[in-house]
């Protein structure tokens, strides 16, 4: 063996694999993790039990004979008020709201962020400051005048109205996201494109947007979860025919006549949580990036 002796026998103590503090650390993490997982577990087992079992057993026990009855009921037969069509209608409404809202809000945000970062037109600084403030203001400040304006323009209680609202309130985060990205690119790239004779839109579409794909993914994640999870805007602006899934879910749970069907409630709740949960687990690290980008405003 040519290995020098000294390097095979480090002078310090090798750290013990499981010192008491390590054990404590893992115990804390494990207990906290269980606490965090409990609601998901409870929702799941509840949704798989018949009502009789729920009344007799306790909420933590596994279902004796798992059944998907509550899920099918929640999807297609649960009642909101007088109609008993389940929350599938809400699901499709949410999809119809989600798709155009995500596309439009990202397009507007990307364009605004790009225009601000390289071209610095008149009013850009003031606009940016305004956007930063708005990101923090509760919707209650804007809602009533918005309702009035929308009914004047004729888009109150419509799909167009709710898409516009999501675009308006998504604008600060989307703009910030894209502006910060474009601001981090070397200015020389922009200059090179100008020397090559590319104009505003060509630089945007052919050079900048292809480089902004990762940010666009983050934006999609942020907007899909944000818009899907929205309650208050859907309640106020979507109108009776377009109520999103969250609003319908709340109605289902709160307007059940007679006996409360907790299994159906929990199945409906899980169904509503499914889309953001899928986005979260599929996107993994991107979701964290999205939160970090959306969170660190300014």
């Amino acid at each position: 063996m040519s290995t020098p002796r000294a390097s095979r026998h480090p002078s310090g103590r090798r750290p013990k694999r499981l010192s008491p503090s390590r054990v404590g650390l893992y115990a804390f993490l494990l207990i906290t993790a269980l606490f965090f997982l409990t609601p998901l577990y409870v929702m799941l087992v509840t949704s798989l039990k018949p009502m009789a079992e729920i009344r007799l057993g306790n909420i933590m026990s596994l279902p004796a004979a798992p059944t998907l009855d509550a899920w099918t009921t929640a999807w297609s037969r649960a009642c909101t008020g007088l109609s008993c069509n389940g929350i599938s209608a809400g699901f499709w409404n949410s999809i119809r709201i989600l798709v155009p809202s995500v596309i439009v809000s990202i397009m507007v945000g990307a364009t605004t962020g790009y225009a601000m970062s390289f071209w610095r037109p008149r009013g850009a600084k003031l606009l940016f400051a305004a956007l930063m403030v708005v990101a923090f203001i509760p919707y209650q400040v804007f809602i009533y005048p918005l309702v009035r304006i929308f009914s004047q323009v004729g888009i109150a209680n419509s799909l167009a109205g709710i898409v516009l609202v999501h675009t308006v309130f998504g604008l600060p985060t989307m703009t910030l996201l894209f502006r910060n990205h474009f601001a981090s690119l070397p200015l020389e790239l922009f200059k090179a494109a100008r020397v090559d004779g590319a104009g505003f839109w060509r630089i945007f579409l052919q050079i900048m947007m292809p480089m902004a794909v990762p940010i666009a993914v983050v934006a999609v994640i942020l907007q899909v979860t944000g818009i899907w999870n929205d309650f208050i805007l859907g309640l106020v602006f979507a109108g009776r025919d377009n109520l999103p899934m969250t609003v319908q879910l709340n109605n289902v749970v709160n307007t059940t006549q007679g006996e409360r069907t907790y299994n159906v409630d929990m199945a409906a709740t899980l169904l509503t949580a499914l889309v953001p949960l899928c986005v979260y687990f599929v996107s993994g690290r991107w979701f964290v990036r999205g939160i970090a980008a959306g969170a660190v405003k300014g």
């Binding site: 965090f36 979860t225 999870n229 929205d230 509503t272 953001p276 949960l277 986005v279 687990f281 939160i291």
Partner: peptide, 11 residues
Amino acid sequence: FLYPFSMSFIV
């Protein structure tokens, strides 16, 4: 620890 944040307040 982070998954609850992906869900809505209603849920």
